[in-house]
Design a protein around this nucleic acid. Structure first.
Length: 149
DNA sequence: GCCAACGTTGGC
DNA sequence: GCCAACGTTGGC
């Protein structure tokens, strides 16, 4: 089993939205490195759910992968801001998994605390300029954050 | 709102 | 295939 971190701006889609929807297609990611990670996701993998560009910034809960990556429908939709004219149904470019709500933390594990905690040294999200919106997380770091949130 | 860090684009 | 210009991300 692998562990991941998914970034989202809560004004666009928050942990509460996921709690309400229960399951959602993780559409709209338009970065090749992030796409490649999403294609590696397996059913049952667990994801830290991270809020960015907000106050406060941090991990707000956990989601799990319930459907492995398949073509992202938004790339074909001209009216969608994530429309990609280079993509065709025969040769899709972008893929997304379905993720399902697992839990919302009572208290978020804030980025300031992640950065200050020696046990989390090396975690990608705390590294300078880490803009990747889908990241792998080590089992050790995943367990530490979920146990201590 | 600022701006540094980053990814992508496109001319050559 | 280089790399400058550009657009975007995201913490602060």
């Amino acid at each position: 089993m692998n562990y991941w971190l998914l970034k989202t701006e809560p004004s666009a889609y928050s942990i509460d939205d996921l709690k309400r929807d229960k399951t959602t297609a993780w559409e709209g990611v338009r970065n090749y490195q992030a796409r490649n990670f999403m294609q590696q996701m397996k059913k049952g993998d667990l994801c830290l759910f991270y809020h960015s560009s907000t106050e406060p910034v941090g991990v707000f809960g956990v989601a799990k992968v319930t459907k492995e990556a398949y073509p992202d429908a938004s790339q074909f939709n001209k009216k969608d801001s994530h429309f990609d004219p280079k993509a065709t149904k025969e040769k899709p470019i972008w893929f997304c998994p379905d993720i399902t709500f697992v839990k919302k933390f009572k208290e978020p594990f804030l980025l300031t605390h992640i950065k200050a905690d020696h046990a989390l040294r090396g975690i990608m999200v705390a590294q300078q300029g880490s803009r990747l919106s889908v990241q792998p997380v080590s089992e050790m770091h995943f367990t530490y954050i979920t146990k201590n949130a």
